[in-house]
Each structure stands twice: as structure tokens, then as C-alpha cells.
Design a binder for these strands. Structure first.
Lengths: 145, 145
DNA sequence: TCCATGTGTAACAATGCATGTTACGGAAAA
DNA sequence: TTTTCCGTAACATGCATTGTTACACATGGA
């Protein structure tokens, strides 16, 4: 299975933006994420469509938080980035009518559903404010990245 | 995140092999999985290295179960196919020294660890015999597929 | 009005991983 | 010796994320 670093990156950058408090350009955010501005716009655009951040074009434009860190959960960010389930069961569809295949798939699906429920429970109850608190507790420095 | 159908495929084929009771060639197993023999050898080879199946070369050779379905858990198969964790947190490593990135990663890692624990609990307590029972309950036919 | 500085988006290459496929070499039984 | 298997290397393929370039559009200031 392969990783998708977007959720981690967005948590990272959202906390930074909130701590910095103002407006940030894609260029500056790209530096925080060690990537380039297009990737930032692409990913932050999804968050904008879900009311987490706002963007402004033209000179003096950039990105700004729409809500406070208290009001954003990890699940909100996850939902903005991906629709559907987080974990995918990895079932097989070689012989859809085979009862053995169906039984194998159903067992895996049930297991993954249970794991996903656990994940959702944690995502839904973890706010970005808590991440900020952890970060500040481990290091007083804020604007660093 | 991306799918990996090997676990589902191996559960499928192992139950079939046990129900059929004898020895199967890569060719016949490939038909069960709607693929080709090389993929079967590649994947079953990992199970052989973990004592789940045995292989025999030459004329009349093929694959045979090393244990009964009661004695194989989903976790055993998972472990044979993949080393390490099942779910990967999808962390970021853009600025490893940044406390905000570290806090984000640690939250995600903790959440995934909890989800993985749930998954492991189910995998470890689900035997292939149970999958066979489910399959047989839904359809009396055994050798079909 | 012109220009500098932003976002928005299309288009494409690079990467990683599972999977599919062909082509061999080697082992064992008839 | 020939047939029938497995074992493996060496590719091609499909798909999703990420990186990159290019260009259209918006906005504020000189």
C-alpha cells in the first residue's frame, strides 16, 4: 500500500498559518512544505472548497484561515482531501460470483470497516488546536519551519 | 491510498485449495484468480517461505497446504505477504526538525497505530476456516469458481 | 493605464508499486 | 529423453501522487 502525504502536509501548514496569524502566499507555504506553489494551490484549493481556508487573487493576495484551529478537526481536513473511505479493503474481483471470494472479501471489508471506524473516531475528536499545543509544548519556537 | 489485492487473493485461493484437498498447479490456481501462473508462483512463494504452503517441482508437482484452515489466521497470510505495518500513516518529511510537522506526524501515527491495532486484533482471531464456513453457508458449492 | 504580484488550471514528466507477460533454467516423473 | 512442473529474471502496463512548466485571469499600486 502506498502513502499519501497530503493530509500530513495540510495539518502542518494549517497549524503554521494559524500560528502566524495572517495571510500567506503559495510561495511561502511551498517553502514550508519543501515543494512548489502549484502543489500548494492544488491541495489548498480542496480545503478552500470545504470552507477551511480562503484564497484571494491579485496583488497582496494569498491564503487565510476561515476558522480557528479549535474549529477544525483532522477529519475535516481528511474529508476535504479525499471523498469516500480512508482505508481501502483491497478486495479481489477475479470471480465476483465465487462464494469463496465473496467470503474472503467480506471478512476483509468488515475488518477494515472496524479499523476505519477507529480512525474516524480519533480524526473526529482531534482538533488542529491540539496539534498546535503539542508542537508548542515540544518547542517554544513558532514561526520556524 | 492505493489497493493491494494480494491478501484477498491468497485468502481466496487458500480456502479453495483446502476445500479441494489435494495438490494444485500454478496454472489451475491462476485460473481461480483470473491471472497467470507467474503471478501465482510469485505470491504463493511468499506463503511457502512462511510455512503456509509447500511447493513441489517437476512433473506431478504443484502446491499443497502445509496446515489446516483452522491453523491459519488472516494475520499469518498478511505477515507472509508484507513485513512491517499494514497501514502506513502517510507522514510528511519536508522539514524533519520542524516541531509543527513532528506534532502533525505524531498525531497521525498514533491514530493509525490505534486503527492498525484494531485490524491486527481481527486478523489474528479470524482463521481461514471461518472464511470457508461463511462461503459454504452462502453456497453449498465448493469447487466452483 | 500599465505593471507587478498573486491565484487557477491545464498539460506533461517523474516516481513508486502492484500487476501482467514473456522467456528462460532447473527438477522430477513417465 | 520428453513432458510437466516450479523458480526467476526482465521487461511492459496501469494507476495515483508529486513535481514542473506554461499561461490565463484578477487585483492593487505607481
Amino acid at each position: 500500500m502506498r502513502s499519501d502525504g497530503r493530509l500530513a502536509r495540510m495539518l502542518h501548514v494549517l497549524v503554521h498559518m494559524a500560528l502566524l496569524g495572517g495571510k500567506e502566499t503559495s510561495e511561502r507555504i511551498a517553502q514550508m512544505l519543501n515543494t512548489n506553489p502549484v502543489v500548494v494551490r492544488r491541495t489548498l484549493g480542496a480545503l478552500r472548497d470545504h470552507g477551511i481556508v480562503e484564497s484571494e487573487g491579485g496583488r497582496g493576495g494569498g491564503w487565510r484561515m476561515s476558522r480557528t484551529l479549535d474549529d477544525i478537526t483532522v477529519l475535516d481536513v481528511q474529508r476535504a482531501l479525499h471523498k469516500g473511505t480512508i482505508l481501502l479493503p483491497g478486495v479481489s474481483s477475479d470471480h465476483p460470483s465465487c462464494p469463496v471470494e465473496r467470503a474472503s472479501n467480506s471478512v476483509l471489508e468488515a475488518a477494515h470497516a472496524a479499523a476505519e471506524a477507529k480512525l474516524l473516531e480519533i480524526y473526529a475528536t482531534t482538533t488542529l488546536a491540539e496539534i498546535a499545543r503539542i508542537a508548542l509544548a515540544s518547542n517554544g519556537e513558532q514561526a520556524a519551519n
